[in-house]
Amino acid sequence: MFNIGAGEFLVLGVIALLVFGPEQLPKAAAQAGRVLRQLRRLADNAKSDIQAGLGPEYKDFDVQDLNPKRFVQKHFWDDDDDEQPKPGAAAQLNGRRPPFDREAT
């Protein structure tokens, strides 16, 4: 999710130490951990509620598929084993070129 290096982590630690002080830093870190666990639990419960509400027809549904980037990746870039590439524009999808319609533009 986040790509934090050792130097950046150290700078964040020093800033937290200056802001909270050595007495309050462990309490603040524990409280932040509790909040993150509660948020993760809330997200997991929401995900399971959505999947349970959709019913058995959508048992393979993944909430990440609602992300527009993931939707495009799944429907345009994933290779289908059933279909053979056709010569021309369809064969360009293997080269990761986006679909293009001259008449639509």
Results as ranks from 00 to 15, higher is better:
L12S: 09
R41I: 08
Q24Y: 05
A46R: 02
F76W: 07
P56R: 15
G95R: 11
A52T: 14
F2D: 12
L39N: 09
F9L: 12
K27H: 07
Q51S: 09
Q51A: 08
Q51R: 15
R40C: 03
E23S: 10
F76E: 11
K74Q: 13
I15Q: 03
F76V: 15
D44L: 09
D81Y: 08
A29R: 15
P98N: 12
D65R: 02
G21C: 05
P85R: 06
A91K: 13
L12N: 08
K74M: 11
D49C: 04
V72P: 00
V19N: 00
G13S: 11
A104D: 11
E8A: 15
Q84E: 15
P99M: 12
A89D: 08
R41D: 14
D44Y: 01
G33E: 07
A90Y: 00
R34T: 10
E57R: 11
R34A: 07
Q31N: 05
R70A: 12
N3D: 12
F9I: 04
G53N: 12
R40W: 01
A28Y: 02
F9N: 05
K69Y: 07
F100K: 06
P22G: 01
V14F: 02
D44R: 05
E83H: 11
G33F: 04
D80G: 02
V14C: 05
L42K: 14
D60K: 13
L93E: 08
V19Q: 01
E8S: 13
V35Y: 07
D101A: 06
F9Y: 05
A28F: 07
Q31S: 06
P98C: 14
L25N: 02
L12I: 04
D79A: 09
P26T: 13
L25Q: 01
K59T: 14
D79K: 12
Q64A: 15
E57N: 10
Q64N: 03
V11H: 05
V11E: 12
A91Y: 01
P87A: 11
Q31R: 10
F9M: 10
V35I: 14
P85C: 11
R97V: 15
F20V: 04
R40N: 12
V14L: 14
D78M: 10
A90Q: 09
R37H: 10
E83K: 14
Q92G: 08
F20W: 07
G5D: 14
N67R: 06
G53I: 09
H75T: 11
D80I: 08
N67V: 08
K86S: 10
G53P: 07
P22L: 02
L93R: 15
A43I: 07
N94F: 01
A16F: 01
A90T: 02
G21I: 05
I50A: 10
G53D: 09
V63W: 00
V35E: 11
A43Q: 14
L12A: 11
